[in-house]
Design a protein around this nucleic acid. Structure first.
Lengths: 229, 229
DNA sequence: TACTTAATTTCGGAG
DNA sequence: CTCCGAAGTTAAGTA
């Protein structure tokens, strides 16, 4: 890992064309050849970058000024960094990182709802998780108190394409006589957060929306098996 | 901008829970309080981070070891960095960055197709760009040689949700007697790249697919007004 | 390897 | 300010 602070200009040509005017920035050169160009602001996304695999070649431009050219391995993406002045340049051996351990993503939400389906609608019981259909798995297939089938689509953030996805499942499921014997399959769209447009579309399609409280769900549980660390 | 290389452990609690075991990493502390934790690999995304607005507080943990606690301004997100050993620590004044100039994104694709609609289908002429409907704007509204209306949805990468979007527009447009007088409104799904699943769904819905060659389109043009720099 | 889906997505623009 | 859609999305899991 090499850290450089330099006044520089940057030009990228690849999936798009982009240009950074002359300014002072941090250049992070990783050992796999990838380069990140950061300013002192914004979020974690660099102003410009090159993803691995790629190689950095230090040379000079037509005017003899130092220029670093980063080329991608497979595509013809190119990143040109014209160096005006180097203010800092150090290298560090970091070794291999053990990586990030996560807990609390959609998969865990699905696990918890599978254990407590009644929080979605009174009397709901689980039939099967990841119920397979020809176009993909339904997150939860349940049955309500009247014995009607209920398909549940779970999202962390409920947006319009999640409703579309559930609609496709329902269209398919409602062609199955074994599921619709007592009536049409209902849909429940469950998410920690539901966007207004998604809610409108769901209502329009006769799909119920359920806001999920992750912390409350975890509280209902003994809480042991979902903690990874 | 402060650059620190340190052996550290990291714990994040907020929208999810995450943990980084002890290892050597680069900590980038920006002047807006945000913190990025990078390893020597991966792409531009840090292993862990805290987005601004947030504040860093340097203190010690219960065992007296240095610990940096980053807290978010509004939410209760917290990032704890337990410092085992500092290997490098420098600060740099970068100033404000003039920002990135881009060229070649979806907006430019739409501009070019609006100027050359016949590349999508023979005899196609433009009626209006960003044709407003109750559920949002249709990218291009055109008319074919027979005077039939054609709705065009443009994507850089054509995926299934783009086809769904165009389907919604068509459903709506086909309820408008003014547009359907000579026949139903047709749909064209135009993209630089069309995923197989999207193509299947489009065909199933009677929507035509058009692969767009950005470079060729730019070549048909005089080429001056689309170059930003 | 290719494709699909989630993401602490981030980022920009419009209402 | 929120809401919505695009992104050089990236990254992880699966067929």
């Amino acid at each position: 890992m090499r850290l450089v602070v330099a006044r520089c200009q940057v030009d990228y040509a690849g999936r798009l064309t982009a240009h950074l005017p002359l300014a002072t920035r941090v250049l992070m050169l990783k050992s796999d050849g990838s380069v990140l160009i950061h300013s002192d602001g914004g979020s974690y996304k660099p102003l410009n970058w090159m993803s691995p695999p790629c190689t950095v070649k230090e040379g000079v431009d037509e005017d003899g000024r130092p220029e670093w050219v980063v080329t991608a391995g497979k595509t013809d993406d190119t990143l040109r960094i014209l160096i005006d002045e180097v203010l800092h340049d150090t290298s560090h051996d970091l070794g291999v990182d053990p990586g990030l351990q996560k807990d609390g993503v959609e998969k865990h939400l699905q696990e918890l709802l599978a254990e407590h389906p009644a929080t979605l609608a009174d009397g709901l019981t689980l039939v099967r998780r990841e119920y397979m259909t020809a176009i993909g798995p339904v997150d939860l297939m349940c049955r309500d108190a009247d014995g009607l089938s209920v398909a549940v689509e779970i999202k962390r953030r409920g947006e319009i394409d999640g409703v579309e996805q559930l609609t496709r499942y329902l269209d398919l499921l409602n062609r199955d006589p074994a599921l619709t014997r007592k009536g049409a399959v209902r849909g429940i769209f469950a998410a920690q957060e539901i966007k207004p447009q998604a809610r409108v579309l769901a209502t329009d399609r006769g799909i119920a929306c359920a806001l999920v409280d992750y912390d409350a769900l975890r509280g209902m549980d003994d809480g042991a098996e979902h903690r990874l660390f």
